[in-house]
Amino acid sequence: MAEVFAALTTSHVPAMGAAVDLGKTRDEYWRPVFEGYEFAKRWIAETRPDVVILVYNDHATALGLDVIPTFALGCGAEFEPADEGWGRRPVPMVKGDPELAAHIAQSLILDEFDLTLINRMDVDHGLTVPLSMVFGQPEAWPCKVIPLAVNVVQYPPPTGNRCLRLGHALRKAVASYDRDLRVMVWGTGGMSHQLQGPRAGLINSEFDARFMDLLIDAPEEAASIRHVDYLRESGSEGIELVMWLIARGALTPKVRAVRRFYHVPASNTAVGHLILENAI
């Protein structure tokens, strides 16, 4: 049987992807960030997931304002890295898992999560930067990736509670798949940042630390954080953190945090990263 055996969370700052693509990861500015992901590179080589369900948001790339799905599952066989206006990132094509995605779609919808299904979509830095941070620069990504795009651009995003519940449903969906697969769920985005207005540049390290504490040990409490508090405390773009709750919800109630990393800044953003394993 398939199983979600671990979760990984990470910021998906576009400048981190540019640092990889331009060979700047050892520069003074970037070294502390990339050293923070060395553990993840070793860990992923040992744990070798077959499939990653990658929770992220599109940034006005494939999804503009014409169609705004709250939760959209990528069901296609492949997803091309997007041209976001300065050329495509030099990263491999993202290979999906249409069979598992179809199973998940059916399971989640019958579990009352009314997903949008997407068969064709380019994927932007929200999805490809986490892959680069964890896998580096391989010829081909070493596992299949099912994109799960969440609207966090037009307010309101789904509530933290809804995201945690979606994670629970995702866990059930994967567990009912009749094939031996090792599946991870990654939650991306955050941590605190604000990219707009006179308050641009807001960073709240205390909020971020508490969020990570709660996500690990008290996810129901993390899920109860209200939208207005994300906006006020973690900045208008910090609200992306609701996506981490989907990854957390896909694990057992108790988890082991095998990696925790935090750094300020990457460009305009606080970088946070966790690796969580089911604790039995």
Partner: peptide, 10 residues
């Protein structure tokens, strides 16, 4: 009442 912030709502 959050200063310096334009929430992109509906």
């Amino acid at each position: 009442d959050i200063p310096g912030t334009y929430v992109f709502d509906a």
